[in-house]
């Protein structure tokens, strides 16, 4: 890992770099259902971190709380030592976010949407214009830049949302299901961009339920199920010789042990 030490926000922590994301005792209840149950998690700066878990495990809820979109019932979150719910504006400057299942301002053209995201963050006009052109070209959206986002395909929509998350060159990138409905070529391009970003000192957190992808792409991984962290560490530590998928199933459980659907056999 290249050690480009970013300037430290807390002088006291100068001896040791604060983690890119630190989560302590995060809790969220929806009615009587506990969606996130006192999660602790450290994402080291400069890591490519995978967050895996079955549907409804609390991944999106955790990430929403960690990025300042959803107020936690209890617990604290720090981004590079800045407390997200204490100093939200400062923390949000450090983060880029690609949320899942969230609409976009889709009556803007792709170019307008990314520009909008940049201007909202208070960036100056010329920087925004330059970066928008770069992002659109890299993500292969240049020829549809003037099309309304509402007319984009699902994969193009993901890519334009990613561009909006990258425009302010954040130090931490939080991507919720970034590869869903993205075609293989674009997915490979996005992976290249993300690897380049990590190599230059940035931190990426990706949530996914595609184990293969996480095993190949990420250096670290945390397994979340039922609102708890079941295992966390480097991918090697977590999978312990097994494939990540087998280890995941072992941790999470829930595999059917019976003979299955006997009548489904065709012969």
């Amino acid at each position: 890992m290249t050690e480009i030490a970013p300037h430290l926000t807390e002088p006291a922590a100068a001896a040791q770099r604060p983690p890119a994301l630190a989560i302590r005792g995060l809790v969220k209840r929806f009615g009587t259902k506990v969606a996130v149950d006192a999660i602790n998690l450290d994402v080291p700066a400069g890591s490519f971190y995978g967050l895996v878990g079955p549907n409804g495990a609390g991944k999106t809820t955790t990430l929403s709380m960690a990025t300042g979109l959803l107020r936690p019932d209890a617990g604290q979150v720090w981004v590079h030592g800045v407390e997200v719910w204490g100093r939200p504006l400062e923390a949000k400057r450090l983060m880029g976010l690609l949320p899942d299942g969230v609409r976009l301002f889709d009556r803007l053209t792709g170019e307008q949407l990314v520009t909008y995201a940049g201007l909202l963050r208070g960036m100056d006009k010329d920087t925004v214009a330059g970066r928008v052109a770069d992002l659109l070209a890299t993500l292969d959206l240049a020829k549809d830049a003037g099309t309304l986002v509402v007319d984009y395909s699902a994969g193009m929509t993901k890519k334009i949302a990613l561009a909006a998350a990258l425009i302010h060159a954040p130090r931490l990138l939080v991507l919720d299901e970034p590869f869903e409905s993205v075609d293989p070529v674009s997915a490979a391009n996005i992976r290249d961009i993300l690897h380049g970003y990590v190599d230059s000192g940035g931190t990426v957190i990706v949530s996914s339920h595609v184990m293969d992808l996480v095993q190949r792409m990420c250096g670290h991984v945390a397994v979340i199920a039922g609102g708890n962290v079941l295992a966390a560490g480097t991918v090697e530590q977590v999978r312990g010789g097994l494939s990540l998928e087998d280890r995941f199933v072992e941790l999470v459980g829930g595999r059917n042990q019976g003979t299955g659907l006997a009548w489904l056999r065709t012969s």
């Binding site: 301002f105 170019e111 307008q112 208070g122 100056d124 006009k125 830049a145 003037g146």
Partner: peptide, 29 residues
């Protein structure tokens, strides 16, 4: 839909390039 390339920024050209101006341009669009 047929692709349309970049260049038309609409109201974003007319409003000041600040967060408030961007919100105004987006709302007017």
């Amino acid at each position: 839909n047929s692709g349309r390339s970049a260049g038309n920024m609409g109201f974003f050209r007319l409003f000041p390039p600040t967060p408030a101006g961007a919100v105004a341009a987006r709302s007017l669009t």
